[in-house]
Amino acid sequence: MDTRRLRFLLELSRLGSMRAVADVLRTSTSTVSQQISLLAQELGTDLVSPVGRGVRLTPAGTRLAEHAAAILAAVHRAQLDLDPTAAPAGTVRVAGFSTAIRRAVLPVVRELAETHPRVSLEIHQHEPAEALAKLSADQVDVAITYDYDLAPMPRQPEWATLHLWSTPWSLGVPEHTLDPRALATAAPLAAYRDSAWIGNSRNRADEDALRIVASVAGFPLQITHAADSLDLVEDLILAGMGVGLLPSDRPHRPGVALLPLRAPGVNLRTFLQLREGRDSWPALALVRDRIAAHTATINSAQQTPVLG
């Protein structure tokens, strides 16, 4: 199959008419029709069918068009891999959880717009398992994931993994339930053993970490609610519906108190992951390095004491 012909099919699926495709690709309508016909002959199946004066994609054409964008992007990246000295250019696809996108990716987008305008980012919000599935399927180039030191994510040899930062987490509880006497005990979590607990609706690692903490404290955990938004976790806590994990360094709303987790502590670890060897593509290497440099600056600033 001549992959160059996929561009004609992809644009037809987007634009709906061969005339529009011809205008975009700066060619003739007959050339568009010929290239799609040749592609159909190569595959041995009809890709378009006539409708009035125009055409529409057949089911087979629709399925192929869905794959075309990924195929053409992969071919483009492969061509760039053959020339690692080329100036960075192209679209790097990044999947990650919302906090990481805001903290590490969006600042890089703004920076690249000024320093490397030929490099752009395509951003997808996903929890770690979802992001890694897309990385495995070559639907993204970078996955920014997290796990907890108490519940580490299995490492796959095909991923190149870079640690970005770690964040201690606490148990968020309604402020009016926080008993100072409980904080002085060896197992302050035991005061919440009968509470409803809030897990993550899209990532099992949160629940695993909570169950380990509860087990060490000596009680079984009952996960009642599930949310994938920290704001919603706070809403549930404020409504008196339960308790749940919150990052210790995140400003929280009045009425929510953070109970430090010790012995064991809970630390969320953030990673940047990509396919081993793919950083030979200059655009991808640039994005990786800029994300790493940006997070290193933030980490250094947070560790520097404020004098005065």
Rank of each mutant, 00 (worst) to 15 (best):
residue 118 R to M: 13
residue 90 G to E: 06
residue 198 I to F: 02
residue 24 V to W: 02
residue 55 V to S: 15
residue 79 Q to Y: 02
residue 246 L to E: 09
residue 123 I to Q: 09
residue 189 L to A: 06
residue 292 A to M: 06
residue 98 S to L: 10
residue 221 L to D: 08
residue 90 G to P: 02
residue 6 L to Q: 11
residue 70 A to V: 10
residue 15 L to D: 11
residue 111 E to N: 05
residue 176 H to W: 11
residue 199 G to W: 03
residue 79 Q to C: 10
residue 89 A to M: 11
residue 227 A to M: 10
residue 25 L to C: 04
residue 273 Q to E: 12
residue 201 S to C: 07
residue 151 A to I: 05
residue 41 Q to H: 13
residue 117 P to M: 14
residue 282 P to T: 09
residue 64 L to D: 14
residue 50 P to H: 09
residue 12 L to G: 07
residue 241 M to V: 06
residue 288 R to T: 13
residue 137 A to Y: 01
residue 7 R to P: 04
residue 60 A to T: 03
residue 15 L to W: 10
residue 40 A to F: 13
residue 82 L to D: 04
residue 52 G to A: 13
residue 89 A to I: 07
residue 275 R to I: 05
residue 21 V to H: 11
residue 77 R to I: 08
residue 274 L to W: 01
residue 205 A to P: 00
residue 277 G to S: 08
residue 5 R to Q: 12
residue 105 V to G: 00
residue 34 Q to W: 14
residue 100 A to T: 02
residue 17 S to M: 06
residue 16 G to I: 03
residue 57 L to C: 13
residue 217 A to F: 08
residue 65 A to R: 06
residue 264 P to H: 02
residue 215 S to M: 12
residue 221 L to C: 13
residue 211 R to F: 09
residue 188 P to G: 07
residue 112 L to R: 01
residue 58 T to S: 15
residue 245 L to H: 01
residue 51 V to G: 11
residue 72 L to Q: 10
residue 234 E to K: 01
residue 163 H to L: 10
residue 133 A to Y: 01
